[in-house]
């Protein structure tokens, strides 16, 4: 990104802009995210316990179907147009857990279906989630490398 220096007039105006840009209600948003994020995790934990009991799995393996279920719920809520309304309230409480990932993929898929399966859905479905995947893989590579070297 090109960083152009502001001239003094622009600098002065930017100070004024800061004065009128009301800040998001940090404490309220954080509290709502804490409660709703906790709720999402509670539901997730419920599914882990459920799969562990019903499918007779060890807890660690039961988390796989539980995550898949949470993704499915996130995807369905997006498809029914409810997710964005819940997220407007919950913020990071919904977007940080796996439900947020589901939403970013499904919302892009839905949005671009009008441009066709290949150039629309196929090309654009990861337009929001793409960076997460790219940098997740890159980070995993370096962590793996460091792990191998240290051992």
């Amino acid at each position: 990104m090109a960083k152009k220096k502001l001239n003094p007039k622009q600098e002065k105006y930017q100070q004024k802009v800061k004065k009128y840009e009301s800040k998001p209600a940090l404490f309220k948003n954080a509290f709502q995210a804490f409660v709703s994020g906790g709720l999402v995790c509670l539901i997730g934990q419920g599914f882990i316990d459920f799969y562990a009991a019903v499918m007779n799995l060890p807890k660690k393996e039961a988390s796989n179907p539980a995550v898949a279920t949470m993704i499915l719920i996130g995807a369905l809520l997006t498809a029914f147009g409810v997710f964005d309304k819940l997220a407007a309230y919950a913020g990071a409480g919904l977007s940080v857990p796996v439900t947020g990932f589901a939403n970013s993929v499904v919302s892009a898929g839905l949005e671009f279906k009008e441009e066709g399966l290949v150039q629309g859905v196929g090309a654009k479905i990861f337009s929001l989630a793409g960076p997460v995947i790219t940098f997740g893989v890159v980070t995993a590579f370096f962590v793996g490398l460091i792990h191998a070297l240290i051992r």
């Binding site: 998001p24 964005d84 947020g100 839905l110």
Partner: peptide, 13 residues
């Protein structure tokens, strides 16, 4: 900006 169903919080401004 974003797809319409994307759940991001909007800024007050």
């Amino acid at each position: 900006r974003y797809p319409t169903e994307y759940g991001g919080q909007r800024r007050p401004y």
